[in-house]
Design a protein around this nucleic acid. Structure first.
Length: 560
RNA sequence: GCGCCCGUAGCGCAAUUGGAUAGAGCAUCUGGCUUCGAACCAGAAGGCUGCAGGUUCAAGUCCUGCCGGGCGCACCA
């Protein structure tokens, strides 16, 4: 919607630029920003500042010249003016805003875009090892991944949400061994539980369920045989648990991809061969290496700082090889874009995986690794780490149980993904004005109540085609309409930059504007025409708050 | 030592990716319910953006060097 206005302006500005003597090929993509101050209009462009340099003119003069040559559609833009050091500010026409609020009130999804053009995206996130319950960083990644998916879909991408299961390797073996030891222990044997085994209570519980179901029949087996039984069964239990935790949290995946599948299909060997054929391997010190430092980015710098071992001198592969094979699998499945959300302990992998993906044939700019940074839980202002049930860390389930899925997700999403986050448990639980989740949910509930009140007061639902929107003339009303108008912009910006935290910010601002409007103006009054116009504004605002919360995966209750 | 994240109001954070007078919230102070939800609103106060240079019409944002905090470094996964 607003994108169309921008398209038109872009085209006309380009004409005006060429007119004033700029070479067409040199013109950069003309971008608009929404200024911080209303007095600077609704859209702003700095293109005159750029042109001034090219034409060796005074920036103000360049802006003026552009303006005299510029044609624009009065139905969308009411006013254009030069400002400051050479900005050009555009003011949206009232009629344009009225049309938008009408769409919003009618519940039309005017905020979708086709920036993605139907391109496909593989979005991998959480991908926790199936040897324990999900933790709070997993919860953060889950919240963010889900929103990035929603945002990309809203922007016209086709998104597949994928969870990678590391069900092969040392960790799962250790897990099987841990269960085996707890099994013996529960049956009265003296055991020594090693440091490197999984010490969580849940391992004991798993061992107990085996005893409850099948008694002591595994006692007679060798440890190796017992592990062979417990490992796959335990992994399956963990997977079921993780899936249940995520579902309870409101996050579901399209594909659960097992590492074992790569081994069964000989994908590791194949991936190695691909690297070898492209001349990206070397042999040194008895090991086979991936010469990842030979892969250069656009600036001509290596994307990785060290070459990496693929096959150790003892002939076994490192973890990197299956990871490469996995990414090759994603590429061969035909995705246009691949995005991984990894935990804080994985930021060292960005280089090597990027290098591999590039060799696998996906352009580097179509691959992105996002890091879900560390989460520090705080309670009573102090770090909160110990869990009663796990002994070593707070699980995602415990956090969600404590503060509820809405607050948990909302708090994770307010901060950008790759920054450290202090999560204040007390604040998230508070049902007061200190808690931003309640602020926006309250605004939504309040609007619902006003709409309900209008109904019971005998005010008919406004006929959106005949509403006199020009009555919405106060600064509060105008501010609300302008905010509604840039929802689409916010969503698109958040999508293209993988930046979910812009959405909570936007709806908090929208809620704030609504509360301010509500405090100053009565919606339902004797004046039927005015009531209808304000109701339309209420409907529109409510729909946008609801849509924003829906993208965040947070509920929008009508009463609270 | 190398790499990543961070340093902005008392606190926890924003700042449209280089734009105009650095912004909202909480906490503090002042005022506002006899009418649609006061879980709200209006106002006040609060700043050398860690420090020092540099790049340019323009720097919280980019470059260089320091200072401080967090995380990570493997032929482990």
């Amino acid at each position: 919607m607003l994108e169309r206005v921008k398209q038109d302006l872009r085209r006309e500005l380009k004409k005006a630029l060429i007119n004033s003597g700029v070479v067409e090929a040199e013109i950069p993509e003309i971008v608009f920003e929404t200024p911080k101050h209303v007095k600077f209009g609704d859209l702003s462009s700095n293109i005159a500042l750029w042109a001034a340099k090219k034409l060796k003119k005074d920036p103000r003069a360049a802006a003026n010249d552009l303006l005299t040559a510029l044609k624009f559609d009065r139905a969308m833009i009411s006013r254009v003016e030069p400002a400051g050091p050479g900005f050009i500010n555009f003011f949206l026409a009232e009629s344009y805003l009225y049309a938008l609020i009408k769409k919003a009130a009618a519940g039309e999804k005017f905020y979708t875009s086709n920036a993605g053009g139907g391109k496909s995206v593989n979005l991998e996130f959480v991908s926790a090892n199936p040897v324990g319950p999900l933790n709070v960083v997993n919860a953060r990644a889950a919240a963010a991944g889900n929103v990035i998916c929603n945002l990309l879909k809203n922007a016209g991408f086709l998104v597949t949400k994928e969870f990678y299961i590391n069900n092969v390797g040392v960790q799962t073996n250790t897990f099987g061994r841990s269960i085996s030891l707890r099994y013996l222990e529960a049956l009265g044997q003296k055991i020594e539980f090693p440091e490197d085994c999984y010490g969580g209570e849940y391992v004991k519980e798993i061992a107990k369920t085996f005893i409850e179901k099948e008694g002591s029949k595994y006692l007679s087996l060798t440890e190796e045989e017992r592990i062979a039984v417990f490992k796959p069964a335990g992994v399956q239990l963990m997977l079921d648990w993780q899936e249940k935790s995520l579902k309870n949290y409101g996050v579901e995946f399209d594909i659960w991809f097992k590492e074992s599948e790569l081994h069964e299909k000989k994908e590791l060997t194949r991936a190695f061969k691909v690297l070898e054929e492209k001349g990206m391997t070397k042999e040194e010190e008895g090991a086979r290496w991936f010469t990842s430092t030979a892969v250069l980015n656009k600036e001509g710098n290596p994307v990785d700082d060290k070459d990496r071992v693929l096959i150790k001198s003892d002939g076994t592969p490192t973890y990197l090889l299956p990871d490469i094979a996995y990414h090759f699998s994603k590429i061969s499945r035909g995705f246009d874009y691949i995005i991984d959300i990894l935990g804080p302990d994985h930021h060292g992998y960005i280089g090597r995986i990027s290098a591999a993906v590039s060799i696998g044939g996906l352009p580097l700019e179509n691959f992105r690794i996002l890091i879900a940074q560390q989460v520090n839980l705080l309670k009573d202002g102090k770090p909160f780490k110990m869990s009663k049930r796990q002994g070593n860390f707070i699980s995602m389930d415990e956090l969600v149980e404590e503060v509820g899925p809405d607050a948990a997700k909302y708090f994770f999403l307010r901060r950008s993904l790759d920054s450290h986050l202090d999560f204040d448990i007390d604040l998230a639980k508070k049902q007061t004005d200190e808690n931003p989740v309640f602020y926006v949910q309250y605004a939504h509930a309040r609007i619902c109540n006003v709409i309900e009140f209008a109904k019971t007061s005998g005010i008919k639902e406004p006929e959106l085609d005949t509403v006199n929107y020009a009555l919405l003339a106060s600064p509060e009303e105008a501010g609300l309409m302008r905010k509604v108008a840039c929802f689409a912009d916010t969503l698109q910006h958040a999508a293209l930059n993988y930046d979910p935290h812009l959405v909570p910010k936007y709806i908090e601002e929208l809620a704030q504007l609504y509360h301010s409007f509500y405090a100053r103006h009565r919606v339902v009054s004797e004046d039927k025409e005015l009531s209808a116009a304000r109701l339309a504004l209420c409907l529109g605002t409510r729909n946008i708050i609801r849509a924003g919360l829906e993208i965040l995966g947070v509920t929008a209750p009508a009463k609270m």
